[in-house]
Computed example of a mutant assay.
Amino acid sequence: MLTHSFKLVTIIAEPVLEPRITTELRRLGATGFTVVEGRGQGSRALHAAEIPGINVRIETIVPPEVADRIVEYISKQYFADYEVIAYLSDVQVVRGEKYRRAP
């Protein structure tokens, strides 16, 4: 089976940031995203959101250059003032054309 190499960008954030982050993902080159609600506890224990422990996990599969733009944007815009983490994973996908914008 033919697969294509991409990056999975995972962002875990306060729910109030979801609309802002998902709008920016599209602007930065993502063709889509998935959002899942979750709960947990990080290095700071409780979250600053209205409901302690509730957060969203936003995931998008993108080419490496788009992943770099997204992580740079998230780190500059949110790390200092919000409960946000971001990480990248290498993924192999089928139907790679779904994850690239047409030129």
Rank of each mutant, 00 (worst) to 15 (best):
M1L: 11
M1K: 14
L2H: 14
H4E: 15
H4K: 12
F6N: 03
K7N: 14
V9M: 03
V9L: 04
V9I: 10
V9F: 05
T10L: 05
I11V: 14
I11G: 02
I12C: 06
E14Q: 13
E14N: 06
E14S: 08
P15K: 12
P15D: 04
V16Q: 11
L17T: 05
L17N: 03
E18W: 01
P19T: 14
P19S: 11
I21K: 04
I21M: 02
T22L: 02
T23A: 10
E24F: 02
L25Q: 06
L25S: 05
L25N: 04
R26G: 00
R27H: 13
R27P: 01
L28R: 07
G29N: 07
G29M: 04
G29D: 06
G29Y: 12
A30P: 01
T31N: 13
T31F: 07
T31S: 12
G32M: 09
F33P: 00
F33T: 08
T34A: 08
T34M: 09
V35P: 07
V36I: 15
E37L: 12
G38H: 09
R39W: 15
G40F: 09
G40T: 10
G40E: 09
Q41R: 15
Q41L: 14
G42F: 04
R44K: 15
L46P: 02
H47F: 12
H47L: 10
A48G: 09
A48Y: 08
A49T: 12
I51T: 15
I51F: 14
P52V: 10
G53S: 06
I54C: 08
I54R: 15
N55T: 13
N55W: 11
T60Q: 03
T60F: 02
T60Y: 03
T60E: 02
I61Q: 03
V62Y: 07
P63I: 12
V66F: 05
V66M: 01
D68P: 01
D68R: 14
D68C: 01
D68A: 10
R69M: 01
I70G: 00
V71P: 00
V71H: 00
V71L: 02
E72S: 11
Y73R: 08
Y73P: 01
I74R: 06
K76Q: 12
K76Y: 08
Q77T: 10
Q77N: 08
Y78T: 02
F79D: 01
A80H: 07
A80P: 00
A80R: 09
D81A: 06
D81V: 00
Y82M: 00
Y82A: 02
Y82V: 00
V84F: 11
I85N: 08
A86N: 11
Y87M: 06
L88K: 15
D90A: 12
D90K: 14
V91R: 07
V91F: 08
V94Y: 10
R95D: 12
G96V: 06
E97M: 06
E97P: 01
Y99P: 00
R100P: 01
R100I: 13
R101E: 14
P103D: 13
P103I: 06
